[in-house]
Design a protein around this nucleic acid. Structure first.
Lengths: 209, 209
DNA sequence: GCTTGGCTCACCCGAATGAGGGATCGCACC
DNA sequence: GGTGCGATCCCTCATTCGGGTGAGCCAAGC
């Protein structure tokens, strides 16, 4: 038997069964790619990754039990050479930034064409880093100093819940002035000038949720 | 040739190619179902519907060019007996309400199992109305009087964009008092007590976007 | 050692917000 | 013809918000 080139072994992690079907169908159609496992949340994905050692892991972000970013971070901490391709619905640059920071090999939108997905799998397997044009644009658009700190996100979360500055101060055990100070920085970073707009922009960019 | 029962002819409208693949694969696996067409936005979907007259139309909501709800409304206006099954990602009760109002035969979440989808297609074809449990719960939870009027949604949209009441008044050619009055009723309907929370709740419920 | 950046807090102040009261008009529904 | 409801407008008033300005602490990095 002629030892042809080994196929790229892919693990697919997504909580939507039908989306998983679609992805797997696209992959299986290629003879240099093979799906070795499917998982429906980050926890399962992590377990299967450890067991199967796939060449490439396709990972959704929004999943129950354990999110894709968390799973990615764990995987990369365990095996810094792991190739994980994030495949998600929205181009929120905050999550993309975090994913890339955690060593994602790529960040692709689910709205991409089948061909894009296939090409990207091959590319990341060849150790190239691939980012969706839309996401790349977002990332380029928003300078890194616009990244919100953990504390700022915490404040903004409470703002989104309709809490007043006073309530937030109480909830986070802070001075009212500190809360206002955080809000001020948040406004600057997001280039808005009121709390409501801050929440919508932050949501769109992927800081909340 | 034995005239077996005619298969149910299905039209699939979704802008994600891979999701479409997954859906179609699930459908084609059944021998009493057949995919007769695929479209990637509401406009295409509408055209294919007119051309193919499918027994059941699967329709996503969030699509470019023409949204699923608008396409649904047009279809139902043309042919009141059309069977359209909304298949979407989020359980926002406002959109569900609008879809059902427009005569959707069903409202299913994409996170459902393959079997659920198949069963639901057969059910709506048999003129039964099917609603995802999660969505049904949302709908039951929120009384009809909590539905926001068009004007209120218009105001809330501007609020979400960070506009002040004064700016909103100017934008909509209203008195400042009117804007405040609308906001007041919005707060009551959504059971919140400030604009920011109103925006987050309305977003989650599917009024904005 | 020094700088940077995140987190913390303080005071002043004008403008906006949200809570109370009202009111009128039109329109659909019964 | 009445009743309800959405949309429009008006007034007052306490509270809150956001801008401006300034400052101290501390951990990480150069």
């Amino acid at each position: 038997m002629e030892p042809t080139r080994q196929p790229i072994r892919v693990l697919v992690v997504d909580d939507h069964p039908m989306m998983r079907d679609g992805i797997c169908a696209s992959i299986e159609r290629q003879d240099d790619l093979v799906v070795v496992g499917e998982a429906s949340d980050g926890q399962e994905g992590l377990a299967l990754f450890r067991e199967l050692r796939p060449d490439v892991t396709l990972m959704d972000i929004q999943m129950p039990v354990l999110g894709g970013i968390e799973a990615l971070e764990t995987i990369r901490a365990e095996r810094p050479d792991a190739v994980v391709l994030i495949l998600t619905t929205y181009p929120g640059d905050a999550q993309a930034h975090r994913a890339l920071q955690a060593g994602a090999a790529g960040y692709l939108l689910k709205s991409c064409l089948r061909k894009d997905l296939i090409d990207t799998i091959r590319a990341v397997h060849a150790r190239r880093r691939v980012i969706s044009p839309d996401v790349a644009q977002e990332l380029a658009l928003h300078a890194p100093q616009e990244r919100l700190s953990d504390r700022e996100v915490a404040v903004l979360r409470l703002v989104a819940d309709g809490q007043s500055n006073k309530q937030i101060a109480w909830a986070l055990q802070l001075s009212l002035e500190t809360v206002k100070s955080h809000l001020k920085t948040i406004f600057e970073k997001l280039a808005v000038d009121d709390r409501t707009h801050a929440v919508t922009v932050a949501t769109r960019r992927g800081y909340l949720s």
